[in-house]
Design a protein around this nucleic acid. Sequence first.
DNA 1: AAGTGGTCTAGACCACACT
DNA 2: GTGTGGTCTAGACCACTTA
Lengths: 241, 241
Amino acid sequence: MFKRSPSLTEQTKAYIKERILNNEFNGGRIPPETELASDMGVSRTTIREALSRLETEGTILRKQGAGTFVNQPGLQIKSRLEEIWSYERVLEAHGYTPTVRVLRVAEEKAGPQLAAELNIAANDSVLVIEKLFLEDDRPVVLACNRIPKQTIVNPYDEAACRLPLYDFVELCCQQDFSYYLSEIIPVLADDTVAGILQIPPHTALFTFEEVGYNAENEPILKASSYFRDDLLRFRLIRRRI
Amino acid sequence: MFKRSPSLTEQTKAYIKERILNNEFNGGRIPPETELASDMGVSRTTIREALSRLETEGTILRKQGAGTFVNQPGLQIKSRLEEIWSYERVLEAHGYTPTVRVLRVAEEKAGPQLAAELNIAANDSVLVIEKLFLEDDRPVVLACNRIPKQTIVNPYDEAACRLPLYDFVELCCQQDFSYYLSEIIPVLADDTVAGILQIPPHTALFTFEEVGYNAENEPILKASSYFRDDLLRFRLIRRRI
DNA sequence: AAGTGGTCTAGACCACACT
DNA sequence: GTGTGGTCTAGACCACTTA
């Protein structure tokens, strides 16, 4: 029934999710794992891994001894904090059709703090790319990214700067972008940020301050992002561990 | 080597983590999965599940074809947002020895918004428990919890209100607390909150607004929490999906 | 070429929920 | 008791990295 790639688990997950969205399960009850396995011609392990991923996403609910159930539609989550990868996709998940505006591309010298975070020397050059994500001309996210010049091996142009950051890194730094380590920090909007995001000054915002790492676990960029809370709100499922 | 409960996977994970903390792996390289499995007398599946959990926690790093490695100590995370369950434990993880102060226990009538969130009728009674978590007399977290009176089946006293919320719910509501659905919202501290947390008014804070659900997926409580950003900061690992 | 993690299988037994 | 999800096993093959 399925091909080899992408993984059977991912195909299984997508297939079950589609059946959920089509309301194919009476009363929200999903068939037993053994039944799903024999129906779809895969092992129960594969089914279980697919169901686990759907459970972490909040799509389904499992009760030991009782069964597996579709979660209420109201509880489905649009933007899970851990899964944000590009703001374009986050905005699309919210039903927006985002546009990207590159506000600034410049070179700066790294201050001592930035140098320490990126494991470079103070006063080394960094490339600064400031991007604004808009939905219907309303600014939603302001992102400021700093990448050490020495990691940029290929020439870049205006178009490259418009790309999602991980594409830029793979294209111009020939590095794999592996993960972000993020801090969530509440701040008051200063005049500059308030002006760009078109909100009153001294509004409370939250920001991401994050360092991006490559597959070798070396820091390759620093990103600071500001969000319009009224247009984009993050949700989170917290489970007992 | 191991007992049956807690699960082999959890014991395996704890054992590997202990060896990591003891610096038993030369050069940060963790032995191959097959070797770990035969050493510890469990199947490779069990080892893999344990390693997966250590990876999501940010403790280790896996590279296909290359090996498994200990993550840099600086990248270890103290309070993963998704894993917060009681604020006592979060503060302990930060090296604090927290105390809890119950500020208020009262009954209120539910307004229309709260009633909708908790799926009760407007003007139904809710029990309000306001708690402050301190570290060395410095307030760190203010939490305000609202539980419909009708779900409280056992009598409660002052001591019960001091318990972590999930213990209170299991004790007095005879319900299993399953998960929270949380929103992260930046706000300006008003005078009341600022006074309680001992910070200047109009400081930017972030808050959790969250609804707690039982195993049957029914809302059982509403919680609003305020955090001293300077004393407790949340970190997050975001991976490419 | 050899060694590593990634995926998948078939089957066993356990813990829990229903009725 | 019966059926469900939860845990675990032993073994196969694949994809990737490293030398």
